[in-house]
């Protein structure tokens, strides 16, 4: 349903931003990425799911930051200066994803995306669209809409 940007009769080259969470490789399409920023403190939200770190101020825009590690079923991140926030636009919403580090920006063939191997936890599985094989490493493509908090998705 989502991400049906694929052209049926020709392969589509997409640029992806690769990043690390808990020493594993993940990626999202660059078309979603507005910018990449260093860590900045956030304001805690009441009654928010634990993976919502809080709200950050991006030059006057208030946006939520998702602790991607926690969201993907790994541990809670203790954010600090070495962390990076990927600012992404998903439909009308702008969200920050807290990740360990951004590793690369590469171009892949969308048709080369394979189903995710059944190695990770069910929780991780739910947020992965598939994997790309890049330099012998498996890079998992995040389903950006799925990782958003539920309410936010419904409102979109």
């Amino acid at each position: 349903m989502h991400d049906n940007e694929t052209d049926s009769n020709s392969t589509k080259r997409v640029e992806i931003v690769c990043f690390m969470v808990e020493e594993q490789d993940f990626c999202i399409e660059i078309s979603h990425v507005l910018e990449i920023r260093g860590w900045t403190s956030t304001t805690t939200l009441p009654h928010a799911p634990d993976f919502i770190l809080g709200m950050m101020n991006l030059r006057g825009t208030v946006l939520p930051v998702v602790d991607l590690s926690l969201r993907l079923g790994f541990g809670k991140t203790e954010p600090g200066k070495r962390h990076v926030i990927i600012i992404a636009q998903i439909d009308e919403k702008v969200v920050g994803f807290l990740v360990d580090a951004v590793s690369d920006i590469i171009t892949v063939d969308e048709a080369e995306m394979q189903a995710a191997p059944d190695v990770s936890s069910a929780r991780t599985q739910a947020f992965i669209r598939g994997v790309y094989s890049v330099n012998d490493a498996l890079v998992r493509a995040i389903d950006v809409r799925a990782v958003l908090p539920q309410g936010a998705r419904l409102e979109a």
Binding site: L45, P46, H47, A48, I52, M55, G60, T61, V62, L63, P64, E92, K93, V94, V95, P149, G151, A152, E155
Partner: peptide
């Protein structure tokens, strides 16, 4: 700065 646009409404806020 509205929260609903980028996040969702939060009870009490």
């Amino acid at each position: 700065k509205g929260l609903e646009q980028s996040y969702q409404s939060i009870s009490g806020i």
